[in-house]
Amino acid sequence: MDGAVISTWLAALLTLGIMSFVYKDNLYYKICEAIFIGISAGYWFITYFWDSLYRIAWIGVVHEGRYVLLGGVVLGAMMLMRLFGKIGWIARWPLAFIVGATAGLKMMVYFTTNAMAQIHGTVDDTMVAFGGGDLYDLIGRLVILIGTVTGLIYFYFSKEHKGLFGGVAKVGTWFLMITFGASFGYTVMSRMSLLLGRIEFLLTDWLKLVK
């Protein structure tokens, strides 16, 4: 038996083990799950170790002289203070750094790429609609306009969803449901192809029933 045969068998047995979970939780799945957790946790630790600690921190500071990165090392070391009961609270500093950075950065990213871009897109689409195009286009763009505005009204928190406002918000939820349905329907086929991919591996590479 050569290496390729062993590796294919190994991959096939692990594949079957995970698939067995669909039937029910069992010993075979539990072993595969345990292997999966151990191997993957180790994989990521090693990857982070070489990619972040070695390549960014060590090479960056020691070999490239990017001393600004020392700040990250100091904050990282503070994280480890969690291991020492009494001064464990120092670990909140790097945590605060990360939360602050995330809040600041993401606020701007979401504002420009989500809010500004989407408002621009809607205005742009609907602007074209009434300037020209056939009836089909007009209806489509009218739907975009109504859908976006009623959808936003659904998310409006300051007013109870009652009366006319409630009715408009209800239309908004219908649009949201169409969006969810569309995503759902769009994804089903690709998910099926994933399973077909694994079955193909078992039948072709492992059992060699299909050529």
Partner: peptide, 17 residues
């Protein structure tokens, strides 16, 4: 558990059942 997306899912599924 683990940083691996589906390794994590395998474990969470196990915990649930």
């Amino acid at each position: 558990v683990t940083d691996e997306q589906f390794g994590f899912v395998a474990a969470v599924d196990g915990i649930m059942v």
